[in-house]
Nucleic acid binder design. Structure first.
Lengths: 192, 192
DNA sequence: TCGATTGTCTAGCGGTGCTAGGGTCGAATC
DNA sequence: GATTCGACCCTAGCACCGCTAGACAATCGA
């Protein structure tokens, strides 16, 4: 029994190594640089080993996305719990969200830009994704305003943040005025 | 002279054919299906011909993006000019924008998602892109509110629309409540 | 008519994601 | 302790990708 357990442990450890390495490589050189060959070389195994853990590259991206969702949820909760009052909580949430996207561009891409084979906004959506959305709704729900469904409001606010994050990172918006944009967004959307 | 002119005409015509075919193929089967081989086969020329018109695949995407920018600007202007009053104009703009994104997903991707090698928010930004942004600002500028820079407001509103468009198309948001989200967004952001 | 130029194609390079098949090595059995 | 067996991993290769060198044919100017 103990031998099998050790093998399972080693296998799980190797899987973590794959995900961590993919993420690291993606953050360093972009997802285009994350090829199965390079990834295999970095973990010091051959390519087919990757396929004994994941169905393909897409699933590896998905694994990075799930890891990122948990971290983002934690970052958002940490920021909001340190803020006083609904208005300041929402502002802190927005800053934390955009900060996470800017600091972890590859993870953010895995989450919202690339195809990681994950289901969204559905029954079988993985728990970390649901929880990340829940983390947003916890603070945003209280400023939705009268008669506005908290979920709907959260979706709209989230979409706005997502738009700012992606357009800024893609060079469509200049980063200089980022703070002003967030300010404006929070002022208008949140009913404090 | 006339012979050269004819050749130039034919060459320009073929370039249009390439762009149109790339766009068509992308709309039908997604940009992943737009390979230089398939594209060459569809226009009934060999691959290297593509490279006599464009530096590479990226530039072809860029050409589709520019074409799309002009169309989007026209669509937005058509919608806003048919609406009465600032509030209704902004609502019409939002609907037209999201409608364009939904009806031309591949073009929208070429514009804002993929790398078409185009410069954004800079001096040397191509005219169609500047004009598309101008089309948005024409209607959005008048509802920016006191003391808010029209350009900044347009950026924020645009980012919100972009977020809704991309998240919806990527399956991150369910399309059923799309109309409600637009309503909410316009209500809150526009100072009517 | 003959060279030069222009245009196009065939063939191929190094890369991609992914997989079939063989070989090795350790664990369980006799 | 020897042997069989099965899990595991690697080598090699598939079809495809973006892109390009070099051969070849057609056309133009002298």
């Amino acid at each position: 029994m103990s031998v099998q357990e050790r093998k399972q442990r080693e296998r799980a450890e190797r899987e973590r190594l794959i995900v961590a390495t993919a993420r690291e490589l993606a953050e360093q050189q972009g997802w285009d640089a994350v090829t199965t060959r390079r990834l295999a070389e970095r973990i010091e195994y051959s390519q087919p080993v990757l396929y004994s853990h994941f169905r393909g590259k897409r699933e590896i991206i998905g694994a990075v996305a799930l890891e990122g969702a948990a971290e983002m949820a934690a970052a958002v909760r940490a920021a909001t719990s340190a803020a006083d009052g609904p208005r300041e909580r929402v502002a802190a949430l927005a800053r934390a969200y955009l900060d996470f996207a800017a600091r972890n561009p590859a993870v953010y891409d895995a989450l919202f830009q690339l195809d990681g084979g994950l289901a969204y906004a559905q029954e079988d959506t993985p728990e970390p994704l649901k929880d990340a959305f829940a983390a947003l709704m916890e603070s945003l729900g209280e400023v939705a305003g009268d008669g506005v469904h908290p979920g709907l409001f959260t979706e709209v606010f989230w979409a706005s943040l997502h738009g700012l994050a992606t357009l800024t990172r893609a060079g469509r918006l200049l980063p200089e005025d980022a703070a002003q944009r967030v300010e404006l967004l929070v002022d208008r959307l949140a009913m404090v």
